[in-house]
Design a protein around this nucleic acid. Sequence first.
DNA 1: CAAATTAAGTCAACATTACTGACATATATT
DNA 2: AATATATGTCAGTAATGTTGACTTAATTTG
Lengths: 184, 184
Amino acid sequence: MTEKKVDSDEVITHPMSEDDGISFEMIELLFFAYRDFVADPDTMLATLSYGRAHHRVLHFVNRRPGITVAALLDILKITKQSLARVLKQLIEDDYIAQQPGETDRRQRRLFPTVKGRELALEISKCQARRIEEALQTLPPETKKASKAFLYAMIEPQGRPTVRSLNHGLEALTVFEPDDSSRRK
Amino acid sequence: MTEKKVDSDEVITHPMSEDDGISFEMIELLFFAYRDFVADPDTMLATLSYGRAHHRVLHFVNRRPGITVAALLDILKITKQSLARVLKQLIEDDYIAQQPGETDRRQRRLFPTVKGRELALEISKCQARRIEEALQTLPPETKKASKAFLYAMIEPQGRPTVRSLNHGLEALTVFEPDDSSRRK
DNA sequence: CAAATTAAGTCAACATTACTGACATATATT
DNA sequence: AATATATGTCAGTAATGTTGACTTAATTTG
């Protein structure tokens, strides 16, 4: 019966700290850095009544024009229903257009419109500016080291996707999984 | 009247790439790394029917036992209402306890219970493990460089808070703003 | 001391983003 | 012809966030 104590007795007053052998600093840096990192896009998109979800869809469609819905779902790790809502709006508002797949006409491939590309670039520029400004104040090797760290923080099975976005390995689930004759 | 073109004409087929002078790689690394970073806590807390919001409240209360509601709102940058909902549950479930402030009895200072501390530590350990595993594979200077980068990514006005969490500058809006006679 | 301010809680209403599960349609594949 | 796949859609629900107005209690200020 010692389970239920008086409130003032069971309370802990000393802070959790690095003494516990845990890198709280890094944990919190990730939290705060990411929070501020997405704040800019959030603000910009709010003027269009769009949210973070719209941004992500717009971004990856611009990074992989012709991406299929399935591949997009795989990147975003959200459900079809969640995607459908924001995608519908983006298409209605002419930021994204659909075209049936040439080889597989069940697919509805997603492409940015000119308007969509402009918006995506505007937002990315804003985020890139924050990154560049942060790096400016630091030694040049910081960028490489940070990239390596963030990359290692990603689940192994997600890493190929990330790489493919930057090195044009388009046949890697993301783009044209049918045209995989070139690799593998 | 050249604004409204046929769909197939106005579509953009080439990917946005680093050629546009923007570091998309870093942007996406932050996105994917953060997504996987919060996935572990999300999973653990889901078993308690808690979400990310609960985690954040629990975390900072453990990092700053005795924190006031106002200071917590300032860290989390959410509204009183959003906080109230999750805080109420955490108190009901005996993860967090309230005590009136000694000098200012309007305040309801928040403390972790033993149960709350245990949960917070468990989650932090999990996140720290991911960080340490990532760093293990990389040169030793990576940690310092990454910390510096993430720190520089935070809005300047938020940086003192981050530092205070790690260096016990408790009198910095976060903890005991009344008892500021000791420093300053 | 009375008035104003502050810390916190509460209520109502609402928006966004996410989820699940079931079902429909068209197209490919076997 | 039967099955599988890609996508869309519907209904219902949950978590998290917002705003604005109001209350209570305690502190500060004129």
